[in-house]
Design a protein around this nucleic acid. Structure first.
Lengths: 110, 110
DNA sequence: ATTTTTAATCGTAATATTGCAATGTAAAGA
DNA sequence: TCTTTACATTGCAATATTACGATTAAAAAT
């Protein structure tokens, strides 16, 4: 991006944006989808499931982890990843507020 | 970004990522926050509320509109923006699936 | 009719992301 | 110990985003 002026916004706004940004890539959605499909945990078999090179996937996993969308624990030779409640519920709460507003005012304007 | 390989992912994954990406900037979160604060509609008074230049805000509004997070209708000299159900509920549904998984499996691994 | 107001568009500089080959690291297995 | 396996890191090239000044477009106000 260019020069994102994060200093002008609240911490909450920056945090929400960071989580959404991490979700904002099809490869990272695909990783989460795979997490859902294989039932919570993925230990070592992500590369091969997603058509990207290993370093690229490693980088995407790092970004998901950084914002708290997934967490990983080292298990010997492999790493085990699963969903992390932290960021999921943060973003979900925000969307709930948005959709509540939508329900309250049934398109009275626009 | 670099060369995002959207061709490798499903339409749904690309769509979800696009919505999340649009949410993934503090200025755009701030715009939505302002929408919530002033009660659904914002007609012409966004610039001045957000510390960015008018062309920048116009660009952010365009991105929110493109993915269906807001909709705008021209009202004479000004434009009236409000939340759009389309993208809000799409992303909300996805997060519901994620958090349902989290609830089903209470951190049995990781 | 002219000026003002509101917001979109264009052009562009600064910076961030994406993707991968090459390389590094550390545990597992032979 | 040596090799293999599984990931993480580094260092780029290619491309996307962000921000804004300048300009344009169109309705409103004078």
């Amino acid at each position: 991006m260019g020069i994102t002026k994060s200093g002008h916004f609240t911490e909450q706004q920056n945090n929400l944006a960071a989580i959404a940004k991490a979700l904002g890539h099809p490869a990272r959605i695909a990783i989460l989808d795979y997490l859902l499909k294989v039932d919570v945990c993925i230990c070592g078999d992500i590369v091969g499931e997603i058509p990207l090179a290993q370093p690229t996937i490693s980088q995407h996993l790092k970004e998901l982890k950084q914002v708290g969308l997934i967490k990983g624990s080292i298990s010997g030779n492999t790493v085990c990843y699963c969903l992390d409640e932290v960021a999921v519920s943060t973003l979900q709460s925000y969307l709930s507020v948005l959709s509540q507003k939508l329900r309250d005012h049934q398109n009275q304007c626009c």
